[in-house]
Computed example of a mutant assay.
Amino acid sequence: MAGGTADDTDDAITAINVTPLVDITLVLLIIFMVTAKIIVKSESIPLDLPSASQGTDVQTVFSVALGADGQTQVDQRAVQNDDAILALATEAHNKDAQLRAVIKADSAVPHGRVIHVLDLLKQAHVAKIAFGVTPAPPLVPVKQPNK
């Protein structure tokens, strides 16, 4: 038995074997670590993150915000119209060839306007373009009735 020999059946058990407790704890730790990685990966979006050998490089982000009311902002400054983006993007790209652009459009903005801004950024030779989004709560799967 645990903690004793077969000869002393009348004596009390004075030692506890903790090996099964440690085994169960380690198995649970591994299960939690694996499931935590799966949960984190399933809710994240793939990103093209820059790599740097030194922490001194600062990344330039060219931000374009499109409002539902027709307003356009570039780097938090209002511009006359969407066509002014081309000149500003070209100027910013000439300063930094690794320029990254982020288009933040209201959900009510027409698709054609977003594509027009995307086309203007590509004309300015901005190769790395992303869309700003707000994370939505995870979708709950619909259960199918049993047949």
Rank of each mutant, 00 (worst) to 15 (best):
G55C: 03
D69K: 15
T72S: 07
Q59F: 01
K41A: 14
H125L: 01
P135Y: 01
T60R: 08
K104H: 05
T35D: 03
I30L: 12
V133L: 02
L118S: 13
H111R: 15
I30H: 02
I24V: 10
A6K: 12
S63R: 12
T19D: 04
I13C: 03
D10N: 10
V64F: 03
T19I: 09
E91M: 06
G70F: 09
D10M: 04
I85T: 09
K95E: 11
T14Y: 04
M33R: 09
I85H: 07
D57A: 06
A87C: 00
A105Q: 10
H93W: 01
K95N: 12
L121T: 11
I24G: 00
N146A: 14
T19W: 01
A92E: 07
A12H: 06
K122E: 09
V102F: 01
A2W: 03
T90Y: 00
T56A: 02
A105D: 10
L86F: 08
T72L: 02
H111P: 05
I115R: 12
R100T: 14
N17R: 12
A52Y: 13
K143N: 06
D10P: 00
A130N: 04
I13N: 07
V58I: 14
V64P: 15
A127Y: 02
Q76V: 07
A124V: 10
A68V: 13
D119C: 00
L120F: 03
L118V: 02
D57I: 00
I16P: 07
T72C: 13
Q144A: 13
G132M: 04
I16S: 08
T19A: 09
Q54S: 15
K128R: 14
A68M: 09
V58K: 13
A65K: 15
K37G: 15
I24D: 04
T9P: 10
P135A: 05
A89S: 07
M33V: 14
Q59K: 11
I38Y: 06
D10S: 11
D8R: 08
S42C: 08
V133P: 02
L66H: 05
D11G: 08
N94H: 09
V40H: 12
I103S: 05
Q98G: 14
R77L: 13
G55N: 07
F131T: 11
I24H: 03
S44I: 07
A68R: 14
P20S: 01
L26Y: 04
S42F: 05
D106Y: 06
I129Y: 03
D75T: 11
D11P: 00
S42E: 06
V27D: 04
T35Y: 10
L99S: 05
V22C: 01
V109P: 13
P110V: 08
V140L: 11
A65T: 15
H93G: 02
P46S: 06
V117Y: 06
E91L: 09
A78N: 13
L99C: 05
A92I: 08
V61G: 01
D48Y: 00
P110K: 10
D48G: 05
V40Q: 08
A89W: 00
D82Y: 00
R100C: 02
A15P: 00
N94E: 08
L26Q: 11
F62H: 10
H116C: 01
